[in-house]
Design a protein around this nucleic acid. Structure first.
Lengths: 192, 192
DNA sequence: GTCTATAACCCGATAGAC
DNA sequence: GTCTATCGGGTTATAGAC
């Protein structure tokens, strides 16, 4: 076997593929779908634009692969547990590099297919959240919870507006906790 | 004076300009900045693409004029009044056609100038909200309030996800009221 | 004032040399 | 596997005819 120096050919391919995907994720997150060009992604990854096409076939396919989100496991239980699970999930997305998350969020708003993919992935997740809320309008409450999460992320990373941009995830979560509990639980006691 | 049939020339011009702006607003709201083309706006307004350029000079200038937002008057007073003012403002933006509002929101995420304009307009407004909140972290609380408003609008109109898309503004406001009060007021009473 | 024609430049995708 | 050349299409913006 004429084993080459650095891994098999398949390994080599996977590595450059991963480099291209990383570059694409970053650019989709920063510029959105329309303004990211295959040429620019290729240059950033240090390869030729034709190679990107060779690997992924089309810009849309490249986006699909770059925007694949690890399915978030969301424990469902009591209303308070639902609220807490959402809060920790938010906290996790609030520090570190949310490149993949931002790529979807930003592109979703300009690319129809991205929006559709997100709806398909986010819908069932909202349903799972709604299942843990003991109220007639559980779906609306779940929708509001999701909206708040998105609003916070967008305001912090995309708009960089107000005190949200540099606040610590812990303080954000702390301030949001009463909100989430109020939305996840039915009204605690309404004596009339 | 050889007065023509329908208004002066200046009036005629203003009317077609307004027609172009209405078409532009709608398309910017639906497609975002990048995907709306001057050609399409012109066709929608029933004029020639060259005429749009003649009137507005550039696509960016057309967007600036189309995305001019009426400055929202926001009464500030006690924390509860701040929360209530925000809620009624949200309710107003939640029914009817929020074309201008959506044009900015959607384009903001891909167009640098739109983002800058929004930051310039939204920053002071957040400051005014923060001024009515008696807490050390008033700016963060104001930022969160703004984030929730944006999240709800985005989720309802742009993503059309979950039960938020077809819920009545009144129910949304009702569910959000405890959230807003909790964020606008310092903790009411914490007996420990 | 309105529209046609076109310049100058980008893009995604394809075909084919090496 | 990698890259060059190019096709066919789109865009903004300009120049000029009517």
């Amino acid at each position: 076997m004429t084993e080459p120096s650095a891994g098999s050919r398949a390994q080599q391919r996977r590595r450059t593929e991963e480099r291209i995907l990383a570059a694409a994720r970053q650019m989709f997150a920063e510029l959105g779908y329309e303004r990211t060009t295959i040429r620019a992604v290729a240059k950033k990854a240090g390869v030729d634009a034709g190679l990107v096409m060779h690997y992924f076939g089309s810009k849309n396919e490249l986006f699909s692969r770059a925007a694949e989100l690890p399915v978030e496991e969301l424990a469902n239980g009591s209303p308070d547990e639902v609220a807490e699970a959402l809060l920790t999930s938010l906290a996790k997305r609030l520090d570190g590099e949310p490149a993949a998350s931002l790529a979807v969020l930003r592109s979703m708003l300009t690319n129809a297919e991205a929006a559709e993919r997100y709806r398909a992935a986010g819908g069932p997740q909202l349903d799972r959240i709604a299942a843990g809320i003991p109220a007639a309008d559980a779906d609306l409450r779940a929708g509001l919870l999701g909206a708040i999460v998105h609003g916070v992320i967008i305001e912090r990373y995309l708009l960089r507006l107000g005190g949200l941009a540099d606040a610590s995830p812990e303080r954000i979560v702390e301030l949001l906790r009463p909100c989430f509990r109020a939305l996840a639980a039915a009204e605690p006691a309404d004596p009339d």
